[in-house]
Amino acid sequence: MNQVASVATPAPANSITASALRRHTLWDAVLKHGTRSAAITVLLLLGGVIATLVQGSWLSLSTFGPGFLTTEKWNPVSEEFGALAPIYGTLLTSLIAMLIGIPISIGIAIFLTELCPPRLKRAISTAIELLAGIPSIIYGIWGLFVLAPFLQAHVQPLMIEAFAGVPLLGGLFAGPPYGIGIFTAGIILSIMVLPYITSVTRDVFETVPPTLKESAYALGCTTWEVVRKIVLPFTSTGVIGGIMLGLGRALGETMAVTFVIGNAHKIAGSILAPGTTISASIANEFTEAETALYTSSLISLGLLLFLITFTVLAIARLMLLRLQRQAGK
């Protein structure tokens, strides 16, 4: 602030000459057009990506038609491709990630904003941001060498045993316990989305006016009641926006999932069985996809993923916009 003031004072208004004015006008124009073309570049890039995806997937989409979305078969030898197994895997792993990730993230955010001593708050916040900075390949290696053997030896046998014979749930947790599979991928993803959901929800929790909370406390509300009746209703759209951001991340995650999901183009009833996701399939198979139809089918998978994440992110933007409008009221 002080610096700005000291720069502004030595140039009194009457010293502006005609040439200086022209120069200013010119620079303004340069700035305007320069930044505008920078912004247009983004649109061109996005448009280019969509156009390439559509063009690349044309062969496969015209060969298989809508059946591409509903076929489970993925056979590179006979060149029959269907996207159902990757779509199923993508949605199911993300669902598991959300089921585990959302309660923990919101729990962390509530603790940080309502209950945490200030010193601990900084430490936990930093730790969560560091979690976001870990490269996904590290999550993958950790998942394969540490988490998967642990789940295989200690968690999955218990799950299989506990649900054996129970209708519906027994099938969901059937298995040999490979340690690798959709369930493990979901757990890894839940850890990966934690920092995203936590930081957004923490930020929106902090937008709750203190007067509201203090009034509630003054009326004798417990912390739980304040969170449940004041904080959450006030910030619900923002929280959903944060969840959507996390979901977008979970849907597109590639490397970590590839390591632990088992990469089987199959839809098994059990969540302990190996499966695959859209991005994992592309990462695995693109380098060696020799025929045009194979390559095109993989690009179609990319297009599908683009559509799914685009929808999710669009919903997130809308939610955040609504939040901003609410906060501005």
Binding site: N75, P76, G262, A264
Partner: peptide
């Protein structure tokens, strides 16, 4: 199944 650099595996886990 047939022979190829990638095939439709009838069973098992895939690792990279």
């Amino acid at each position: 199944v047939g022979a190829n650099s990638a095939v439709e595996w009838p069973a098992g886990i895939g690792a990279k």
